[in-house]
Structure formats: structure tokens, C-alpha cells
Design a protein around this nucleic acid. Structure first.
Length: 201
DNA sequence: GAGTAGATCCTCT
DNA sequence: GAGGATCTACTCA
């Protein structure tokens, strides 16, 4: 049973719940007929204006994060540290700037293409580990900001695979020390023991 | 294995 | 003009 996620999946108010449910789903890109995909094994939630780690913290609203204030189900892509493109899924309703950062995938289709994009020789756990590598392997760049996630080019599917509750670990987010107390919030979710999860061996 | 520095550029102040 | 939701490589042990 394979089906694309409906927009209603992203429109729900509980971004933490959606972040958890995204684990096990498959993220697919299809740029001009070249398909690459991977199963999501790590995600981070950014919970709107009350979340100091979010780009929308305190209601900040700029041209860059404008897409976060729109309806759920769109992509939010931006460049970090001048090198890494980070891919997010926007959730919730209009004017509620929630988003989920996809941090790690388990490669499925188009592995050869991912190797070519990342310049790696062979498949190993570093190919799609960490948000910078994920977007590199899938060929996601800032020009893909604001794409609706049910287009043929970029979408997420559910193949019925669902991780069990005890296979999902919650922990503090990565690289958000500047957010003070909010840096400690357990808004990061990953699959227990999966080699593609970042932040450990 | 652990710790640190450097890359590198768009965005906001 | 400064800094960032990161990764890699290199050092030292």
C-alpha cells in the first residue's frame, strides 16, 4: 500500500506528532525524470514563534521564512553556513510558522545518482546522514523553496512501514545552542539504532 | 577516538 | 558587515 501523503497530513496543529509520524515515510525527488528517494529516519520540529531556535522565533517574518507562515505541505529550503542546503517541511495552518527539518534518510532509489551528486565512491552511512548531506544527495537547492509537496517533482509517500513507539527516540536538537533553554527541548526524533542517524556512530 | 578549525555565501542588522 | 537549524578533515593522543 503506497500512497502520497495528503495535504491534510501537514495541516494538523501538533508539529511534534507530525515529526514523529514522518519517520518511516519516504521522501522522493524527481528532477526531470531522475528519481531519488530515501526513508526518513531523523527529523527535528521547529514550533513556531515561541521556539527560539526557529527562524520564526518571536514572530520574525522575512522574505526568507515567509513560506513558513503559509499553509502546511510546502517545502522550506535555505542555505546554511554558505555551504549546506537544509530541507524542511512546513506544517500547520496559515500564520502558524511550524516546520520540520529532515535530518537523515535511509537511501532507497537512485543511489547511483546520489553517489554522483555527493562525489562519493560507494554507499555508506554518510551518504544521507545529516541535513546538509540529505539535500545534496537528493539534489535539493534553494530554488526548490516553496514547492507544494504533492507535485510530481517533490513529494513524500507512505508505504505502510511504521516504526514502533519504542523504536523512536526523542532528544535535544542539534546545532541550536544559541537558543538558550529552548535548545534543550526534546524536539528531535530518530530511529533507534539506525546507522544513517546523525550525531553518533 | 576526541577535539578543533575552516569552508563559504545568503540573509538580516 | 556579521553570523548561521553543518560537515569534513586534520591534529593530537
Amino acid at each position: 500500500m503506497i500512497k502520497k501523503l495528503e495535504q491534510s497530513f501537514y495541516l494538523r496543529p501538533d508539529v511534534l506528532k507530525i515529526a514523529k509520524e514522518l519517520l518511516g515515510k519516504i521522501l522522493v525527488t524527481n528532477w526531470e525524470g531522475i528519481i531519488t528517494s530515501g526513508r526518513i529516519v531523523e527529523s527535528e520540529a521547529y514550533k513556531g514563534i515561541i521556539d527560539k531556535a526557529s527562524h520564526a522565533a518571536g514572530g520574525r517574518r522575512t522574505a526568507r521564512n515567509e513560506i513558513m507562515y503559509g499553509l502546511g505541505g510546502f517545502s522550506y529550503v535555505y542555505l546554511c553556513y554558505g555551504i549546506h542546503h537544509l530541507f524542511n517541511v512546513v506544517t500547520n495552518l496559515k500564520d502558524a510558522p511550524h516546520a520540520i527539518l529532515i535530518r537523515a534518510l535511509e537511501p532507497i532509489d537512485g543511489i547511483d545518482e546520489m553517489l554522483r551528486r555527493t562525489g562519493k565512491k560507494k554507499l555508506d552511512h554518510t551518504l544521507t546522514r545529516g541535513p546538509g548531506n540529505v539535500s545534496k544527495a537528493l539534489g535539493i537547492y534553494t530554488k526548490h523553496n516553496g514547492i507544494f509537496l504533492s507535485e510530481e517533482r517533490l513529494y513524500i509517500v507512505d508505504d505502510g512501514n511504521q516504526y514502533k513507539r519504542n523504536e523512536i527516540i526523542a532528544s535535544p536538537r542539534i546545532g541550536v545552542d544559541y537558543a538558550g533553554e529552548d535548545a534543550k527541548l526534546p524536539y528531535r526524533f530518530y530511529v533507534k539504532g539506525n546507522p544513517y542517524v546523525s550525531g553518533k556512530k
